[in-house]
């Protein structure tokens, strides 16, 4: 098993000097993911916080080959790169046994919404790629518009709370299960507060032959509106309240990796976040109740899926 001390002595593939917000969760996620393979790595990055903040021209925070094409096609780009290297191997231009890893990266905007079609196509065609989505629940890079990953009841700039609305009215899309429905060999959900979980899943994803998908919850002090030092605490609470269950699906078989000893009420996760502040007004009590019920339903369903 990997030790933090050893991981810390590895070379950073994403380096300091990036412009991500203070207290941002994205670098912590990629600190682990990029250490999960020692093979040469090629990354295609969808437009989003990570892409914008790490490559402010003429600077780059990437120590690996990195491509940005557009918002919607990170998965198509990396699939094309993978196919090109396959062809080069077939033609004998590079050794057949040379190991190269291909990683697609996007936020929830570039993955749940805009890039879904490209991702669906790439995994359906069976490219040997890994796709990591850092889900910060909003279009955080452009001012916090709602995405299909934004939680029910959250106030976002395009789903603001007010006298006529309690925030976002729709339940979030379950992207991980959409990817599972593609019958890919490996799909998982993780969170940066459990680094071993994240590291192991990333390692498994890289070692998987064929497409692998990793959905990682990413705290965002700017859009979630909380004290920026509390990110890891919030990630822990998301797992303890079962809002963000940690699980993996290997060839159709579900495994829940973390079951809280005591399932906490969703209030504990909602309360520190400014985007949910309005839910604690008296008139929004039914929204809170609905929130808890839906989380309970999803959790029960997941446990059932595991027992199959």
């Amino acid at each position: 098993m990997a030790k933090l001390k050893d991981l810390a002595s590895m070379e950073d593939r994403l380096v300091a000097g990036h412009g991500l917000c203070l207290g941002c969760g994205i670098p912590l996620i990629f600190k682990m993911v990029l250490r999960a393979t020692e093979d040469p790595l090629i990354i295609a990055n969808a437009t989003g916080c990570l892409e914008v903040c790490t490559t402010i021209f003429p600077r780059t925070s990437w120590n690996v080959t990195w491509i940005h094409s557009a918002f919607e096609n990170a998965a198509a780009t990396i699939a094309g790169v993978e196919a090109m290297y396959k062809s080069l191997k077939r033609k004998g231009r590079i050794p057949k046994d040379k190991k190269i890893k291909f990683l697609g990266v996007g936020g929830d905007g570039g993955t749940y919404d805009i890039g879904l079609q490209a991702l669906s196509g790439a995994v359906e065609r069976g490219h040997d790629i890994v796709y990591v989505c850092y889900d910060n629940n909003a279009y955080a890079n452009t001012g916090g518009q709602r995405s299909s990953a934004t939680p029910f009841g959250a106030s976002a700039t395009t789903s603001p709370e007010g006298s006529q609305s309690p925030g976002k009215l729709q339940w979030r899309k379950d992207l991980t299960k959409i990817l599972v429905a593609h019958n890919i060999p490996y799909a998982a959900q993780s969170s940066p507060h459990r680094w071993q979980d994240l590291y192991n899943k990333a390692k498994k994803a890289f070692e998987t032959e064929g497409p692998a998908f990793l959905n990682v919850l990413c705290f965002c002090p700017t859009e979630w509106k909380y004290d920026e030092s509390q990110g890891i605490r919030l990630a822990q609470l998301a797992a303890d309240t079962c809002i963000w269950p940690l699980y993996e699906v290997e060839s159709g078989k579900y495994k829940v990796n973390y079951k809280p000893k005591e399932k906490k009420p969703v209030l504990e996760w909602l309360k520190p976040q400014g985007r949910f502040r309005h839910l604690f007004k008296e008139e929004n009590a039914p929204i809170l109740e609905e929130f808890q019920k839906q989380v309970d339903r999803d959790w029960e369903e997941l446990l059932k899926l595991e027992s199959f």
Binding site: D12, G19, I56
Partner: peptide
């Protein structure tokens, strides 16, 4: 590669 280390955040 990695020249963002010149940005002192």
């Amino acid at each position: 590669a990695g020249n963002s280390v010149k940005n002192l955040t």
